[in-house]
Write a protein that binds this DNA or RNA. Sequence first.
DNA 1: ATTTTTGAACTGACTGGTCAGTACAGAAAC
DNA 2: GTTTCTGTACTGACCAGTCAGTTCAAAAAT
Lengths: 209, 209
Amino acid sequence: MERSSTTPGGSARREATRQKLYEAAVTLIAEQGFSATTVDEIAERAGVAKGTVYYNFASKSVLFEELLRHGVGLLTASLREAAERTAGEGGGKVDALDAMVRAGLVFIDRYPAFTQLYVAELWRTNRAWQSTLMVVRQQAVAVVEGVLREGVANGEFSEEIDVPLTAAALVGMVLVAALDWKSFQPERSLDDVHSALSRLLQGRVSGRR
Amino acid sequence: MERSSTTPGGSARREATRQKLYEAAVTLIAEQGFSATTVDEIAERAGVAKGTVYYNFASKSVLFEELLRHGVGLLTASLREAAERTAGEGGGKVDALDAMVRAGLVFIDRYPAFTQLYVAELWRTNRAWQSTLMVVRQQAVAVVEGVLREGVANGEFSEEIDVPLTAAALVGMVLVAALDWKSFQPERSLDDVHSALSRLLQGRVSGRR
DNA sequence: ATTTTTGAACTGACTGGTCAGTACAGAAAC
DNA sequence: GTTTCTGTACTGACCAGTCAGTTCAAAAAT
């Protein structure tokens, strides 16, 4: 009863090809955008023939959609893991948020191209993969919202906070700070960036000391 | 000494045509992206002939670059105005930041398509207008950094804050929160969104009451 | 053990359509 | 009479998607 470790339907060889295509596509699309990236380029960078792309994916958009799902899946898992870990360690919700900020930074550090591409496509309208994006966005944001809600419930956070909006703002804070870090001062360490964001998060900006 | 209010070299008629083209291009590119938007579409939406586009702009990319400059110019002016106004009213730097958050929200409220497009293009690499974007980004972020630095100098803000990173994070917070507002809960009022962000900015999230 | 067959995976030349940019004569606007 | 715009037609490059053919490892037959 041998079974492939990943997708049930796919042979090991096929799965390897798909992975190569994801990797090629993610960097190219992050750099140039979806429409400006040609299937020929993706195939060439992945080291396969153009036909192979269409053997593995129904179309260019389908390749892109599956790429999105793949990537956000990784992020969501990582955020959830961070939140649960601090809970297990008996930390409060502030610690959970902080751990999630760090998990976000680690993710962006490891997959900067994916993050770039995600941000660039998220708020577009009238596109084929719009619904995929919405689903996938909600998965990630929901983890943050969950922690905020629990914090409100147990009194750690003010009851007056607007959960969805605050969650969006937090995600945005991390996202933009991290992209700027990678784009404009990549020499800085993750710890460095993390502590700057922690400070902002905990309101230790205004007020001396 | 009559003088055109905008570009010195352009007649009033020409300027009006350019404006129509900007407006057509900004919505189309926000929706579809630069590459997926055709010059024919832009011309049609603006109600002019295709030849007119090329009479007024050297190429599609040039049109886009000038659009970027135009839009960020508006934003920068608005942020600067907000900061100076609070200074005139004797407010502290916290008030200045708060006023700039509001100015940012007002801008995004008025020009959502431009904001969308800007975010989508900002972190791309290897594109023709990359340098234009950098210049233009720095103009806007510099205003925020200036206020932060002044606040550190006069003791209102902690000396430990990382000015460029904090500025980026603040911009990101407003940007993402506002885009989410427009995309996913457009019925909410600007005041509503503003107060949620103020609360976050001033650290009134954790700690009850 | 050797040969034959099978089929999933892959290849790359080709096609039909799309689109940026050009050309230009005549009409409007100023 | 000069500037700006129109309308139509055209070109050449580019590109998503197709498909007939190739590869090759493993299964089946001998």
